[in-house]
Structure formats: structure tokens, C-alpha cells
Computed example of a mutant assay.
Amino acid sequence: MSEPTRPAAGSPAPPGRRERKKAATRQAIADAALRLFLERGYDDVGIREIADAADVSTTTLFKHFPVKEALVFDEESDREDSLLAVVRERPPGRSIPNALREHALHHRGADAGSDPRFVTFLELVNSTTALRDYHQAMWLRHTAALAQVIAEESGLPAGDPACTALAHFALEAPHAARAHDDPQQVINRAFDLLDRGWCGLEGPKAGPS
């Protein structure tokens, strides 16, 4: 019998059985919740129904998702990593506001009309006040982390108010566009303003290395 393959030095150890089981349970709960919400509407589905559909107790459900709204948004840490990478890994010559513009357009589905599942998900969120408010609150939690990366990439001091302002308004712009008939146009106009205002503020590290 050959020796089991060992992870390379410095690489993270693969998740153990317990971690895999927890992740599978969490995913089953999130999948069941989203399926029921899409079928019947968010307000018409109860926590106990979701737990039954996922074959778990309500206690187990709340261990994974502390509030009902969290069942719909299960990838916030991944989203923050993606958001910060947009700034750190932008192509040479692309401004930070323009990199965040592309992310905002994609994140809000302005260019995802070819995926009916994503469109259906957006319709669920946009038609449910509790989900809209929760998602915006969750999204704005990334302001501090985004402002820090903007400062690092721009050669500006940590805590610079201009970096915080850019981060806040970049995250707020897609939310403000929801009420308009053409959200893509609104997002573009907002980021045009942010890009013009950002010109001249960046320090010596004006682009990705």
C-alpha cells in the first residue's frame, strides 16, 4: 500500500470530516431556503419549514444562520475577498473608481441578464424590503476594509477620509440605482463622478505593481 499523499509544505491542511459535514449542512440549509423563497416568496416561508426541508432542527439552522435574512446571503466573506482583489489586481492604468465600477455592474447584475437564475435571485432581493435592507447593511460592512486597500494602493495614509468616502460611495452606488429604470446608466454616472473627483488625489503608488 502506498503512503497517503501529504499536503505540500506551507499549504493549508484539507478540511477534516467534521468541517466537511458542517459545510454540507450549511449548504443544504441555504439551498432549501432559497428554493422555498423562490417558489413561494420570502415572507411566506417560515424557519421551521426551511429546517424540515433541509432535514435539520431549527436549533441547528440558527447555529449556521443567526437571522432569516442571512439564509439568502451565504458568501459575504468570499464577496469581500473578491471586492478587495478588484482594487489590488486591476490592470495597469485603470483607476480604482473604474475598477470598482466594473465590479458594481457585475455584482448588481447589470450585465448578467443571460443567467435566468441570477435574474430570479435579484428579483427576490429587490422585491423584499427586509432582504434589500439586510443586504445593503452587510455590503456596507466592507467599507473599512475597502478603504484600507484603496489607501494602500494609492499611496495615501491609512484612515485618509478620501479613501473612506470613495469606498462608501462605491458600495452605495448600486443600492441607489435600484429605484431607476436603467440602473446600469445610474451606476455609470455615479462612477463617472467618483472617477473625476478621485483624479489628483492618489499618491506615488497610483497603480498596481
Rank of each mutant, 00 (worst) to 15 (best):
G203Y: 08
V125M: 03
A173G: 01
F62K: 09
K205F: 09
E153P: 01
G197N: 10
S127D: 12
F169Q: 12
I50K: 01
D133T: 14
G203A: 14
R141G: 08
Y134S: 06
P15R: 15
A177P: 02
D115S: 15
G155P: 09
A206M: 13
P4G: 13
D81G: 15
D182H: 09
A104Y: 00
D74V: 14
D111K: 02
G16M: 14
L122Y: 04
D74C: 09
P174M: 06
A179T: 15
D133L: 14
H106E: 08
F37G: 00
A167E: 00
A147L: 14
Q27H: 10
L122V: 04
R40K: 11
R141K: 13
R48D: 15
E39W: 02
D181R: 05
V125H: 04
E153N: 07
L193K: 00
P204F: 12
L100A: 02
F169D: 08
S127F: 06
D43N: 15
A176F: 12
W139Y: 10
R90W: 01
F73H: 05
Q184H: 04
P92F: 06
L201Y: 06
H142Q: 13
P161F: 14
M1D: 15
F118G: 08
E39P: 01
A28E: 14
S2H: 04
P12W: 04
V186H: 03
H180F: 11
G207H: 07
E76H: 13
G41I: 05
R178E: 15
D181M: 05
A53W: 03
L71V: 11
P91C: 01
E69A: 15
A99E: 01
V56D: 03
E39M: 08
G46K: 07
L201W: 07
D182L: 05
I187M: 13
